[in-house]
Computed example of a mutant assay.
Amino acid sequence: MSGRQGGKKKPLKQPKKAENEMDDEDRAFKAKQKEEAKKLAEMKAKAGKKGPLTQGGIKKSGKK
Rank of each mutant, 00 (worst) to 15 (best):
N20G: 15
G62L: 05
A28Q: 12
A31D: 14
K17Q: 13
A37D: 08
G6F: 02
L53V: 09
D24T: 12
A47K: 05
E42R: 07
G48D: 01
N20Y: 12
K50C: 03
Q14G: 07
Q14V: 13
G6H: 03
E35P: 00
A28T: 10
K8D: 12
A47H: 01
L12S: 15
G51I: 01
S61W: 01
K39L: 03
K63D: 04
K44I: 02
P52S: 10
A28R: 12
K46H: 02
N20Q: 15
S2A: 14
S61D: 04
Q33I: 11
M22G: 11
A47F: 00
K50R: 08
K34T: 14
K49S: 07
I58M: 04
G6N: 05
A18T: 13
E42D: 09
D23P: 00
K38P: 00
N20A: 15
R27H: 13
G56I: 04
L40D: 06
E42M: 03
E35V: 08
Q33M: 14
L53M: 09
Q5H: 05
K60E: 11
E21L: 10
L12N: 15
K16S: 14
N20K: 15
A28V: 11
K34L: 15
P11F: 01
A45L: 02
K38F: 08
Q14H: 09
K64C: 08
E42C: 00
Q55E: 09
M1K: 03
D24L: 13
I58G: 04
L40G: 01
G62V: 02
T54D: 05
A45S: 05
K13A: 15
K9H: 05
G56T: 04
G7K: 04
E21T: 10
K8L: 13
G6A: 06
K10I: 08
K16R: 15
K8A: 12
A37S: 05
